[in-house]
Design a protein around this nucleic acid. Structure first.
Lengths: 130, 130
DNA sequence: ATCTTTGCAAACTTTTTGCACCAAT
DNA sequence: ATTGGTGCAAAAAGTTTGCAAAGAT
C-alpha cells in the first residue's frame, strides 16, 4: 500500500459515483500533484484485480470506475449524454433467461444501456408535432 | 453513390455478420486496393446516418458494424471473447420496464452484453473441483 | 536486499480531421 | 461547374508499456 494507491482509493471512495481515470487524477492531484495518470490506471487495474473496483463503458471514449458494491446499472441517453442509475433487479429476469437458455453468466454492468431519455423523447415529440 | 461507397456496402452485405471497419477494409481492398480506411469509416458514418447501418461495441477496442435489420443482440464472453447472437425478444421485458419506470427508450443493441460463456463456466467449475 | 510501484515519455489502438485533388451530377 | 467524396498523412483520444529511479517490506 503506497501513497499513490491510498490517494486513488480515497478519491474513488470520496467521489461516490462513476468517475473517469482523469477525474480521479484531478482529485488526487489536489493534494499530490506528482501522481501521474499512468499510476491512476495501474492502481485501478490492481484494484479491479482485487475485485474492489469495476469499470463501465458509458459510451464512446472514456470508461468510468466505481466501487464494486454498487448494485446498479447505468442508462445513458445517446442524445444528451445524461446518465441515470437504475436498480439491478430490473435486469434479473434477463440474467435468468440468458443463464437458462444459453448457460451464459451475464456481468450486466460492464456496459451501460444506451437509448433516449425522457427529456429527449419529449423533445422529439414536440418537434414532430410542429 | 460512388465506387467506394458501393464497395463498402457490398462488403457489408456480403459479410452478413458483425465486422470491424478493418475487416471491411480488407474485403473491399481485394478488388479496390486504393480504398482507404478513412473512407470506410466515412462511408459507415454516412450509412449510419441513413439508418442503414449500426455499430456495436463488443468489448474494449474495435466496434463492429452490421445492417440495421438484424434484430439480435450480442453476448460476449469476457474470458475467451466468443461472440454469440441472441434474439432480441429476450430483451423485450427489460425494454418495457425501462420504458414504464423511466420513460427511457432503450437502443439495446449498441453495446454487447458481456459475461462468461458456457465453456468458460465449465472450465471454472473443473478447476474449482480439482 | 529484494521485490514492487512510481514518474515519465513514448508507444499503441481505434477513429477522426484538414487538405488538396478527383469524381458525380 | 459545382458540390460533395476520396486518399493521404497527421492528429486525437484513451490507455498501456519500457525503463530507470524511488519506495515498501
Amino acid at each position: 500500500m503506497t501513497h499513490a494507491r491510498r490517494a486513488v482509493l480515497q478519491a474513488l471512495v470520496a467521489a461516490r459515483a462513476h468517475v473517469t481515470a482523469e477525474d480521479l487524477l484531478n482529485i488526487v492531484q489536489i493534494d499530490s500533484p506528482e501522481i501521474h495518470l499512468s499510476t491512476v490506471y495501474r492502481t485501478l487495474d490492481a484494484l479491479e484485480n482485487l475485485g474492489v473496483v469495476d469499470h463501465v463503458h458509458l459510451g464512446h471514449g472514456r470508461a468510468v470506475y466505481h466501487l464494486t458494491d454498487n448494485a446498479h446499472q447505468h442508462i445513458v441517453c445517446e442524445k444528451c449524454s445524461a446518465v441515470e442509475e437504475v436498480p439491478s433487479k430490473l435486469f434479473l429476469q434477463l440474467e435468468k433467461e440468458l443463464m437458462d437458455n444459453y448457460q451464459f453468466k451475464v456481468r450486466m454492468n460492464h456496459f451501460a444501456v444506451i437509448g433516449t431519455c425522457r427529456k429527449c423523447l419529449a423533445k422529439l415529440e414536440e418537434s414532430r408535432d410542429s
